[in-house]
């Protein structure tokens, strides 16, 4: 028979982006150990709704650890106590009867709170828009096997590409830095031959956008890697640093010449 538990939750509640927020305390009762953390919040929310109150707003979508939509700081740790686990994949068997659980949103000026535990991660989208892609318009692609990619490079690209863009790295970083997110995308594309033509411009643009969004700098605490549900390595940050130095110090500046087909 599965165990049940009673918990006391301290949850950040904030009506809207410009409102002042604060912690509210709720009881989570008869929680099965087999529930996911978000299902536990679903149960709390059903009860709040029954009492005529507004449920706690939190983001989630796939609930299988891949979409990157969910995320909250649980007892001081982004995505909670389990390594390599998103909030939606955290299960209540890792908690004990009587536990007090503090739940807070990601904290960063670049991730403003929209409501309760919901934050705006548009900054990540804008970083990708700044250059986190390979320019390959539909229909223009050459034969897929025309350009062999060493398996080691493809695997490294995949390691970096596993990032789900959840923002836990920023939430965990003492400086609220987005370096791991930026590094992962730059390393994914930079590891592949297809990514070489735009490699140096890409890192410059992405890093400039990262700074413009107001994220902090990296001071090598490696909290990001510890919080990352996909265990993206800080090795990619070293790669980003190296690429940026090369891009700005060694590589020539590209100049657009005017004129065209006559």
């Amino acid at each position: 028979m599965s165990k049940t538990m009673n918990l006391t939750l301290h949850v950040w509640r904030q009506k809207g982006g410009t409102d002042v927020g604060g912690f509210e305390t709720y009881k989570a009762q008869d929680i099965s150990e087999h529930m996911s953390f978000l299902e536990m919040l679903d149960v709390v929310n059903e009860r709040l709704l029954a009492d005529g109150k507004e449920p706690i707003a939190f983001d989630s979508d796939c609930r299988e650890g891949i979409c990157g939509m969910c995320g909250m700081v649980i007892n001081g740790v982004p995505h909670g106590p389990n390594a390599a686990t998103t909030t939606c994949q955290l299960h209540m068997r890792h908690f004990n009867d009587g536990d007090e659980v503090t739940i807070e949103p990601w904290r960063a000026s670049a991730f403003p709170v929209l409501r309760d535990l919901v934050v705006d991660r548009g900054a990540f989208d804008r970083i990708i828009q700044a250059g986190g892609y390979i320019s390959a318009s539909s229909g223009s692609a050459p034969e897929a096997n025309g350009l062999p990619v060493p398996k080691a490079d493809a695997d490294r690209a995949m390691d970096a590409a596993a990032c789900i863009g959840c923002g836990a790295c920023v939430a965990a970083c003492p400086n609220a830095s987005a370096m791991l997110f930026v590094a992962a995308k730059a390393a994914h594309l930079g590891a592949l031959p297809q990514g070489q033509p735009e490699r140096w411009e890409r890192v410059k643009k992405m890093v400039a956008q990262m700074d413009a969004e107001g994220f902090g700098h990296c001071s090598n605490h490696y909290e990001c890697m510890a919080a990352c549900p996909k265990e993206i390595s800080v090795d990619f940050i070293a790669q980003l640093n190296r690429d940026l130095v090369r891009a700005t110090v060694v590589e020539r500046e590209h100049e657009e010449k005017s004129g065209g087909a006559g």
Partner: peptide
């Protein structure tokens, strides 16, 4: 065409040791 397109975009498909 889809595979060609995705490879050009940098989708890191699994590869064999020869790079294909």
């Amino acid at each position: 065409n889809i595979i060609d397109q995705c490879v050009a975009q940098g989708v890191p498909f699994a590869r064999e040791y020869g790079g294909l």
